[in-house]
Simulated assay, not measured.
Amino acid sequence: MKKIPLILLSLIMIPAVQADELPDTQTELVSVPKLASQTYLKPRPLNAIPDGEFGDKVRKGYELFVNTQQLRGKYVGNELNCSNCHMDAGRKANASPLWAAYFAYPAYRKKNDKVNSFEERIQGCFTYSMNGKAPASGSAELVALSAYSYWLGMGGVMDMAKLDSPVPAISDALLLQGGKLADFPIPEKVKSMMTIDELAKLPGKGFPLVPKPPLAYSPVRGEKVYQAHCQSCHGADGLGYETAGVYSLPPLWGPDSFNWGAGMHRVNTAASFIYENMPFGKSIQLTAQEAWDVAAYVNSHERPQDPRYKGDVSKLMTKYHKHQGYYGQAVDGSPILGSHSYAINPKGE
Results as ranks from 00 to 15, higher is better:
44 R>L: 15
189 K>H: 00
117 S>A: 12
338 G>M: 01
287 T>V: 08
102 Y>M: 00
81 N>V: 02
152 L>P: 04
128 Y>V: 05
160 M>E: 05
37 S>T: 00
195 T>C: 00
256 D>F: 11
309 Y>A: 08
34 K>R: 13
237 D>V: 00
31 S>F: 11
128 Y>D: 15
281 G>E: 03
242 E>V: 07
287 T>Y: 08
32 V>W: 07
110 K>Y: 09
73 G>R: 00
282 K>T: 15
46 L>T: 12
315 K>W: 10
327 Y>M: 06
239 L>I: 06
285 Q>W: 14
239 L>H: 14
10 S>K: 13
152 L>G: 01
128 Y>N: 15
86 H>V: 07
178 G>C: 12
233 C>V: 06
222 G>Q: 08
47 N>W: 08
94 N>L: 14
124 G>V: 00
74 K>Y: 04
50 P>V: 09
313 V>W: 02
3 K>S: 04
139 S>Y: 06
271 A>N: 12
74 K>F: 08
6 L>I: 07
17 V>H: 06
230 C>Y: 06
140 A>Y: 09
86 H>S: 10
309 Y>Q: 03
12 I>G: 03
230 C>G: 09
111 K>Y: 15
45 P>I: 02
192 S>I: 00
87 M>G: 11
50 P>C: 05
185 P>A: 03
1 M>H: 03
159 D>C: 08
291 A>F: 13
286 L>D: 02
186 I>G: 06
135 P>S: 04
124 G>K: 04
62 Y>H: 15
250 P>D: 15
208 P>A: 04
314 S>C: 04
99 W>C: 01
251 P>L: 07
251 P>D: 09
144 A>K: 00
92 K>M: 15
69 Q>P: 06
317 M>E: 13
18 Q>P: 01
250 P>E: 11
